Simulated assay, not measured.
Amino acid sequence: MMPDLGKYATDVYAAYAISLLLLAGLIWRTIARARAVKKQLAAAEARLETRPNA
């Protein structure tokens, strides 16, 4: 059930496409950042485990 957009259909579809691309980019960036932070945390925890007791 799609409304008849008339002469604005191209603009509306383009706005939908741009919005979906931006959302996909934000999701990708969030996942990539989470992986990087998880890797940094694991490295920091490994350094703590190998540190001599003071």
Rank of each mutant, 00 (worst) to 15 (best):
G25K: 01
E45S: 12
K39L: 12
A9V: 01
Y13W: 04
P52A: 10
A46H: 13
T30H: 05
A46D: 15
T30F: 07
V37C: 05
R47Y: 11
A15L: 09
Y16D: 04
T30D: 00
A34L: 13
G6Y: 02
T30G: 03
V37S: 12
Y16A: 05
G6C: 09
P52N: 08
L26Y: 02
Y13T: 06
A54D: 13
N53W: 06
R33P: 00
R35S: 06
Y16G: 00
R33A: 12
G25Q: 01
R33H: 07
A24T: 08
L20V: 05
L5D: 04
K39S: 13
L23T: 07
P3I: 06
A15R: 04
R29W: 05
D4R: 06
S19R: 12
Y16I: 14
P52S: 12
D11F: 08
T50K: 14
Q40F: 06
Y16S: 01
A14E: 11
A44L: 13
A14C: 05
A54L: 14
P52K: 11
R29D: 00
Y16W: 07
A24S: 09
N53R: 12
Y13C: 09
G25M: 04
E49R: 15
R29T: 02
A24N: 01
L5R: 05
W28K: 03
L48C: 12
A24Y: 03
E45L: 15
I27D: 00
V37R: 15
R33S: 08
A34R: 14
R33Q: 10
A43R: 14
V12C: 00
K39V: 06
A17W: 12
T30S: 08
A17K: 13
W28M: 01
V12I: 14
A34F: 10
A36R: 11
A14M: 09
L5C: 03
E49G: 02
L41S: 10
R51G: 03
L21F: 03
D11V: 02
L5V: 02
K38R: 15
P52T: 10
L26M: 08
T30Y: 04
V12D: 01
R33E: 10
I18H: 09
L5W: 02
L20G: 03
A34P: 01
A24D: 04
K38Q: 15
G6N: 04
E49C: 09
A46L: 14
Y8V: 03
Y13V: 05
K7Y: 03
L23D: 05
L20T: 04
R47F: 10
